[in-house]
Nucleic acid binder design. Sequence first.
DNA 1: TCGGATATTTCGATGATCGAAATAAGCAAA
DNA 2: TTTGCTTATTTCGATCATCGAAATATCCGA
Lengths: 153, 153
Amino acid sequence: MLTAAIGATIAEWQDATETFDDLVGRQTGLNSADRRCLSMLARGPQTALAIAREVRLSPSAVTALVDRLAAHGLVSRKADPKDRRRVLVVAQASAFALFERFYGPIARAGAEMLTAYSIEERKLILRFVRDACALQKRMIEELKPTDSPAAVE
Amino acid sequence: MLTAAIGATIAEWQDATETFDDLVGRQTGLNSADRRCLSMLARGPQTALAIAREVRLSPSAVTALVDRLAAHGLVSRKADPKDRRRVLVVAQASAFALFERFYGPIARAGAEMLTAYSIEERKLILRFVRDACALQKRMIEELKPTDSPAAVE
DNA sequence: TCGGATATTTCGATGATCGAAATAAGCAAA
DNA sequence: TTTGCTTATTTCGATCATCGAAATATCCGA
């Protein structure tokens, strides 16, 4: 037993995560795709196409998205020296500051929370979150191929 | 140690969860708010205002949202016998079927995954996810009051 | 019964997104 | 080198979700 309680709590946790993220969006004026894009750019400059794939937006939508972020001074465009068709989108310092402001505190609080667990316990927690993450990714793969026209009709 | 690895894995897990959810949206033709609303209605009929609060949409947007779901046959409107100003939105059988179809498999796989853990281990996992959930909710509260006009300018 | 409060809908405007077409640059073969 | 195909991004017009304000309907207390 306990699996039902664990599942329910995870659902509640994910819901809270979504609510938190939504709040960040309201306070920053950035929508879900904007935030996803910024989070990706925090790992380094990316081309528009790579952003489109990861954020799951059309290339034209990414043009508008980057315009938006650039208007806020959060990113800048830079020609790719290797291939002048490409445009590299680069996160600015303000983007990192924004991340620190909104996600820094929770990251630190999370680390702090984990100090209440022994090393052995943390090993188990890591095993669990890895299992959960792997499971979620497996379910993504199972959902992908189908591409059913409309499950809702 | 291990906290960094745990944090990184959780971030990866949340990302996968978002991707999964987005895929469900594409395959069902339901956007994020639609899905949130349905998920709420799975717990019982709700008034438009309650939906607006939970889904974080304006009341007028909820009218449109419910129209959309109703057009898909997923919900129906029902006058509240107690207060005729109110409209109760009720999930239809097709909504539950949709949930079962997309979230049933992962719920069962998750339960199955947990069978690899002993009861003692599950207790620890439950403690951990409760801690994480509580932390996330605490961070929501800390973010709420500020209501800063624009953190981005 | 009157008047303010509450619940929902309607309406016009805004803005994010899409797909198709346009533009620009790379690349390979003649 | 030139020609033509491919790839990367942007522009453009259309669509749709959402908002805020106004309209409508109902409730409830004085």
